[in-house]
C-alpha cells in the first residue's frame, strides 16, 4: 500500500514530487484529446495557465523569503494543468492568469503552501473564475469539425440536454472544458494511476454511485426516470472525481472517510445540477466537502494498532 494513511505507516517509495509528475503524466491523454477536439487554442490556455501558476508561486515564495526551489515540487505545475482542464478552450488570455492567481495565492500559499491548504487549489481558481466572469466560463466551443464553430451549450445546460448520444459524450464530441470532454482519454490516465497505485478508487466510486442513483431517482420528469449514464458522462464528473476529489492534501485519510467524502460530493453535485443556478456542480461539491474533511477524519479515526476497545 503506497497511500497516505494513518498509522501503522509502511514506508513508501513514492515521494510527493514523483506523485505530482505521475498524475501529470496520467492527465496527458486528456490534454491531447482536448487539443485535438478544440484546436490549438486549448494548448494556449494550458500553457498560459501552467506558466502563470509557476510564476505566481515564485513571486509569493520570494515575497515570503522562502526557498524558490520549492516550486520544483511540481504542485504548481499540476495545479496549472488541472485549472486549464477546467476552462473552456476559447477564454481570453487573462482568464487563466487570474485563475492561477486565485489558485496559487488564495487557494494554497495563503494557507501556508503545499500540504496546508484546505481546498483544492485548482478548484478554488476555477470557482473564482466561474463566479467572477460567468459569461466567459459558460461560452463553449464546438469541436473543430462541427459546422457551427461558435458558442454552444454544454450537455448539462438545461436548454441543450438530450441531443447527445452516449458515444459522443464518451469520446468528447461536444462543447465543454478542455480536459473534461474526452472520457476515454481520462480513463486511460485513470487506469495508469490505479496501476501505479497513486490514487484509491473509494472516493470516485462512491461519488459516481451517489450521482448515478440520485440522477436515476430525481433526474427525470417523474421519479425513477432520470438518466444516470448521461449524468455520469456529461460535465466534469469523471475529471473531478478521479483527479481532484482524490487529492491527498484535501481528502480524508481513512477508507471509510473517503467513502463518506465521495457520497457527500455526489449528493451536492446532483443537488446543484438539478436545482442550482449553475449548470455544473462538481467543483462546488468537492470544495464544500474539502471543508468537511477535518470533521470526517475525526469521526472515522482508525483505532490505534494493538489497542482493544474497552467495554464499559
Amino acid at each position: 500500500m503506497f497511500r497516505v494513511s494513518p498509522a501503522p505507516h509502511i514506508k513508501s517509495n513514492l515521494s510527493s514530487r514523483k506523485i505530482m509528475y505521475l498524475v501529470m503524466l496520467a492527465l496527458l491523454p486528456a490534454g491531447i484529446a482536448g487539443v485535438y477536439i478544440y484546436g490549438l487554442c486549448s494548448l494556449k490556455v494550458i500553457f498560459i495557465s501552467m506558466a502563470s501558476c509557476v510564476l505566481w508561486e515564485l513571486l509569493f515564495l520570494k515575497f515570503r523569503h522562502k526557498d524558490p526551489r520549492i516550486v520544483l515540487d511540481g504542485s504548481a505545475l499540476l495545479t496549472g494543468l488541472l485549472l486549464a482542464y477546467n476552462l473552456p478552450p476559447e477564454v481570453p488570455f487573462w482568464i487563466p492568469v487570474v485563475g492561477a492567481w486565485a489558485s496559487i495565492i488564495l487557494g494554497k500559499q495563503l494557507f501556508g503552501g503545499l500540504g496546508h491548504n484546505i481546498f483544492n487549489p485548482a478548484l478554488v481558481g476555477r470557482v473564482f473564475l466561474q463566479i467572477s466572469w460567468p459569461v466567459y466560463m459558460t461560452t463553449w466551443k464546438n469541436p473543430r469539425w462541427a459546422l457551427d464553430s461558435v458558442s454552444t451549450a454544454t450537455p448539462l445546460a438545461k436548454e441543450g440536454a438530450r441531443s447527445f448520444s452516449y458515444i459522443d459524450l464518451f469520446l468528447g464530441n461536444h462543447g465543454g472544458c478542455i480536459g473534461e470532454v474526452c472520457i476515454l482519454a481520462l480513463l486511460i490516465g485513470v487506469l495508469f494511476l490505479i496501476f501505479t497505485n497513486v490514487i484509491s478508487f473509494h472516493t470516485p466510486l462512491s461519488f459516481f454511485g451517489t450521482v448515478m442513483v440520485l440522477a436515476w431517482i430525481f433526474g427525470g420528469k417523474g421519479i425513477f426516470q432520470g438518466d444516470p449514464i448521461f449524468h455520469l458522462l456529461a460535465g466534469g464528473l469523471i475529471l473531478g472525481a478521479f483527479f481532484m476529489a482524490t487529492d491527498y492534501v484535501t481528502s480524508p485519510l481513512t477508507r471509510r472517510g473517503k467513502i463518506i467524502f465521495g457520497i457527500g460530493c455526489g449528493l451536492l453535485t446532483i443537488l446543484i445540477r438539478l436545482k442550482g443556478g449553475y449548470p455544473e456542480g462538481v467543483s462546488y461539491a468537492i470544495l464544500f466537502m474539502n471543508a468537511m474533511v477535518p470533521m470526517i477524519d475525526r469521526y472515522t479515526k482508525t483505532r490505534k494498532y494493538g489497542l482493544v476497545k474497552k467495554g464499559r
Binding site: 473564482f128 463566479i131 467572477s132 466572469w133 460567468p134
Partner: peptide, 18 residues
C-alpha cells in the same frame, strides 16, 4: 471587466479576511 465575485458574498469574506 469586473470580477463579479467581489460584489457577491464570497467576495466580502475574502476581502475582510485578506
Amino acid at each position: 471587466e469586473p470580477a463579479l465575485l467581489f460584489i457577491l458574498a464570497p467576495g466580502a469574506l475574502l476581502v475582510i479576511g485578506i
